[in-house]
Design a protein around this nucleic acid. Structure first.
Lengths: 243, 243
DNA sequence: TCGAGTATACTTGTATACAAGTATTATAAC
DNA sequence: GTTATAATACTTGTATACAAGTATACTCGA
């Protein structure tokens, strides 16, 4: 009956992951990509059957996804919330909030090591573009921001990031995959923005940092559009599922 | 052997809670109160035996506590992180961050209903003080801030609060219990701060809101000191546990 | 044809069983 | 006494079993 859907999450990122994490990552991708639609009701038994695992890792995954605000655990079944434009805007509200906070801490710190680290990541991003590796690019993009956030050693800001990260990761993955084939110069612009960000950190230039953040977020709207595009693509390529 | 420790978390708040939640709430209180010390290693089997439940709800509880940054899940055993003064400062960093964000949204909204709701909660707090009910007071205090945060309907800000709330709740519970017997006028000051907060929201007075927030956070230092006090009290009242 | 009540099938939450892996301890060899 | 190896006891992760509760659907009655 239901077609076997290809795995969306990069399997090589899951080498050390438990079954529960695998289910969470894959299910997250399916929700964010729109394969699993908002409002759908997920049953533990059904998911366990779909992924050919027991209910234990499925339960674990559902709890994770609930804490990421992607589903809502109810009496009977988990209701998919998914990401509408509203949610994506909200995510970027929070990113703006925490990255601004982080920057305020950074201006009081020695950022030499951080700048070096970020430059390394940036070069890796360039290599990823050169070889049109969207997944690797996404990984480094996430890593870039995580490195900045980690550098201030603030466990509760990091906690927020830890909750946001998986969703961001999926979002960026899907967006980059949709863009890497054609919109080549999008990536050079992203690189430029990140270079600006590094420069802002190095010179501790608040205004520049805000500017680069906003440029970064101006991309968001496009990212979102790309996401809807990729949702269209994906859902068109999949047969209507019977239940 | 190990003494049977009284339950710290109000049992009547757990009427509809699952076993997993009960374990999480109680364990959280024990960690924050200092009964379970930082650095301690928790084993699922041991906890299950202590609470006379199976490993399933214990696993669930540990995952919850890990997402709240109270423990760190490692290969063998969960390491207790707990709350030092550093963590508590960080928690209030985040509260300041999100409550400021919320206020910026509030100034663009109709706050009439909210103000009414907050006034009601404030009256309940007064009653709780009158009858020296520290638990009820704590509940309403938490509810006060949650009501404000919920009012802007921002799911990802709410997500941050949801992660912070249980820790805040435990912290406030312990602090209020330690203070309600003697430091009576502390509570009238808290009430005054909250009245100021409501007034700031009603008049959309940014400066007043910042002032009341800061007054609120000036109390933090005392709260923390009270927490250490109560940790002393509790640990002195408990025999050294053999392992 | 419509409504009430019961039976059935499916839901989650918890307990238990099992497997794979890790640390520790004891033992043996040098 | 020290080191290396092996055995043991404990760890987590996953699967399965069971119990309690809920929604659905069907049957019986009017």
């Amino acid at each position: 009956m239901s077609e076997s859907i290809d795995f969306l999450y990069p399997t090589k990122w899951l080498s050390k992951a438990s079954t529960g994490e695998r289910v969470a990552c894959e299910l997250r991708m399916r929700i964010i990509s729109g394969i699993v639609e908002s409002g759908a009701i997920l049953s533990e038994n059904k998911l366990a059957a779909d992924f050919s695992v027991s209910r234990s890792p499925v339960r674990e995954a559902l709890k994770t996804l609930a804490s990421e605000n992607l589903i809502r655990l109810e009496r009977m079944g988990a209701v998919v919330i998914g990401l509408t434009e509203k949610e994506i805007k909200e995510i970027y509200d929070v990113r703006l909030l925490i990255e601004t906070f982080v920057f305020e801490r950074l201006v009081k710190m020695d950022v030499q090591e951080l700048v070096k680290e970020l430059s390394k990541i940036l070069e890796m991003m360039k290599v990823a573009i050169k070889y049109k590796d969207a997944d690797e690019f996404s990984y480094q993009d996430i890593m870039f921001h995580e490195t900045i956030i980690r550098s201030i050693h603030h466990s509760y800001i990091l906690m927020i990031w830890d909750n946001l990260k998986p969703v961001m990761e999926s979002l960026i993955l899907l967006s980059m995959r949709a863009r890497i084939k054609e919109k080549y110069d999008d990536f050079t612009r992203i690189i430029n923005n990140h270079e600006l960000y590094i420069e802002a950190i190095r010179t501790k230039d608040r205004a520049l940092m805000i500017e680069s953040l906003h440029k970064n977020f101006d991309d968001v709207q496009e990212k979102v559009e790309d996401l809807w595009m990729s949702q269209q693509m994906l859902t068109k390529g999949v047969e209507q599922q019977d239940d």
